[in-house]
Amino acid sequence: MANRAPHTHETTQQLKEDLHHLTQTIEELVSATADDSRSNIKELRDRAEKRLKETRDRLESRGERFYGEARDSMEHQVDACDRYVHENPWTSIGIGAAVGVVVGMLIGRR
């Protein structure tokens, strides 16, 4: 897990930069619309569209990667839990019973 902290910080920093560039381009586009220079507006619009597409692609890629990492982690945890239950069935039954008693007590208090 310690390996993910630098990766997360790097990803967060890249996301901030992407959003900053996109915001800056959109602000330029908005301020350019105050001018009546059609070529300037078209150039800024093209840049804004390009940055928007790049940012969207990066966000989709990161989202897919995060989903994959979370899915792999969850599968690993489920496999570890399944192994534990198969290796220690009576302990697992005891833990389940204890949790059931606690939940029953909490529900009974209402």
Rank of each mutant, 00 (worst) to 15 (best):
L44Y: 02
L52F: 13
N40C: 06
R47I: 00
E28V: 02
I41C: 05
N40W: 03
T55I: 02
K50F: 15
L52H: 10
E43M: 10
E49P: 00
R45I: 02
T55Q: 01
R47A: 06
E28T: 04
D35C: 13
S37L: 11
E43T: 11
V30K: 05
R47G: 01
K42Q: 14
R51M: 05
S31L: 09
E27G: 00
K42C: 05
I41R: 04
N40P: 00
D36E: 15
K50A: 12
K42P: 03
E43W: 03
T33H: 13
E27P: 00
R51T: 07
A34I: 12
E54H: 07
K53I: 07
E28G: 04
E43L: 10
T33E: 14
E28C: 02
S39N: 08
R56I: 09
S39Q: 10
S37Q: 13
L52K: 08
R45P: 01
T55M: 04
D46P: 01
N40S: 13
D36I: 06
K50T: 09
E28K: 04
V30Q: 07
L44K: 01
S37N: 15
L29N: 00
K50G: 03
S31I: 07
K42N: 11
R45D: 06
N40Y: 03
I26E: 03
D35T: 15
L52T: 11
R47V: 00
E49G: 05
R38W: 12
A34T: 14
D36S: 15
A48V: 04
K53W: 14
E28A: 07
V30R: 05
K53C: 04
A48L: 03
T33D: 11
V30L: 07
R56W: 08
A34G: 12
E27S: 04
K50V: 08
S39K: 05
T33F: 11
S31M: 09
S39A: 15
L44A: 04
L44M: 05
S31R: 10
A32K: 01
S37C: 14
E27C: 02
N40E: 14
D46I: 07
T33M: 12
E43N: 08
A32W: 01
R38G: 11
S39R: 04
V30C: 02
E28H: 06
D36T: 13
